[in-house]
Amino acid sequence: MRQITAVIADDEEALRTYLKKQLSTLWPELLISGEAGDGDAALRLIEERRPDIVFLDIKMPGLSGIEVARKTAGTAMVVFITAYNRYAVDAFENEALDYLVKPVTSERLKKTVKRMKERILASLPQPDLPGVLDKILKTLQQSAGFLQWINVKHKNDVQLIPVAEVCYFKASDKYTIVRTRDGEFLIRKTIAALGDELDPEQFRRVHRSSIVNINAVHRIDRSLGGTQTIRFKDIKDLLPVSRAYSHLFKQM
């Protein structure tokens, strides 16, 4: 029977050493052909050594374990090593992937080794990795890609303002005024661009020239003529709602 090889990728040297030692007792025939301390090194190592099994830490410096597995899909059986994280564990469980949760106990490692051996004997393929991994990547990346931080120049520094703290954005010539509870800041990004990048669940266009953070709104006043004006919780500014957008607040 040919030699089965494995590589271990984890940013902690101690854990790699520990895993190697445990594996040498539980699976003496397995040859650990290499170790890597970050994602990029892991990728190079896998491409170079072509191991049968890869132990891959999810959270590594550089490329993440998931990204490495995605790039090398189909070349090796993957056992993910993950820190305690309910979502990740659920995801692996659902997709029938092999995984170890830190702290890795020898009990659990024994089970994993048994499964690996069975898989190799039966030459069972692992599940469709790329598809599954894309799905997991999506569940683990909470940010849906919406704008989260506004970079503003503040004296000599660049301040990072979380969008949640912005009351409203308002166009002003070539700039946009960012109004927070603490004051006003100018940014170069246009209202149109902001409208595309901000989370529509939280930010609403109320006028050609302004976008409002729904969570910062105290109430909407309506005049006899039907004009709506927005009042905010923490600031005294008033903001008109133009007729084109007034339907947004009909139910409020």
Partner: peptide, 22 residues
Amino acid sequence: EPHFLFNTLSTVISLIDGEPER
């Protein structure tokens, strides 16, 4: 964070045989 707790224990378990001092 439980995450931190388990990570720490994981490192301790890994170190305990090879580098008991650390």
